[in-house]
Amino acid sequence: MPLIEAHGLTKQFRQAVKEPGLVGSLKHFFTRQYKDKLAVDHIDLSVEAGESVAYLGPNGAGKSTTIKMLTGILVPTSGSLIVDGLVPHEKRQQNARKMGVVFGQRTQLWWDIPVIESFNLARDMYEIPAARYKANLAEFTELLGLAEFMNIPAGKVSLGQRMRADLCMALLHEPKLLYLDEPTIGLDIAVKDSIRKFIHRLVEERGTTVMLTTHDLGDIEDICNRIVIIDSGKIIHDGGLADLKDNYARDRVIHFQLARPPASMEPICAGLPACDLHADGLSLSVRFDRFEFAAGEIAAAVMPHVEVIDFRIDEPEVEDLIRRVYLGQLSLAAPEPTADTPESAVAAEA
């Protein structure tokens, strides 16, 4: 049985509508008007134990709302949701015992007292047996390098230190499920790296199920084996990272560096009918579907007509792909049309 099972999960918010200015405020005071907003729109999601899922989407897509329903903070408007056998909002405290949450933008540590005291508080709140607490604390302290600021109040440590301490706090009770809401936001590369390694290890060694929202694609590549993309409250992609690349990032680009400008493009174009060619002075680039052609075939078609000094191949970038989804240039719901938009061609050449 899946650890998380959602069917038709929907969350509708009621937003107050107010016209601008004093008149608007007055009007609002007497005749309140509301507009319904579908934050999460009938999503189906099933997560097995041990999976690490990247939950992506542009700002306002419904990521946080979903996470809040999973954690039992928000009550769904409709649909069903079962997390490890419980309906989260009905059994909020029981659900909370089995999960850990880290909000990148908000600390769970007690601001004014030393970090270690927050950990001790977690021990009592989650009723962690003394021996397990000690062992976990020792392990996380070492892996996350917490020793140097253990006795400093959370309000006085750096953001990177705080995030590491927050991770530790969320994991001391060995939750089955870990929700990470933008865990690497604002962190430097070294700290990002150590946090990713730590979470990766957690997934590998403890079998913790991780659900992660992020805008940082490095997080995904290092941690997740599955990507779910939500946009305007609807899930528009659910699959592995490789699937995403295979299905939507089919284009590769070969850039040739030429000895002299080609005399004519005609014969080259004729040899590569399904490809997209760009010539600019001494450079020639060919965009092709990597399932239709091998890079060698492209080279073989180009070489007889020009003198090639050098070449390189651009692999499809997930980052570019997701960016295009966010910008609405690429619809994942339907298969991507073969014709390229000018923007993506520019991006690929940049």
Partner: peptide, 13 residues
Amino acid sequence: EGRVATDLARPID
């Protein structure tokens, strides 16, 4: 400011 969300994510009353 929504800090109560943190409390709601914990097994406490």
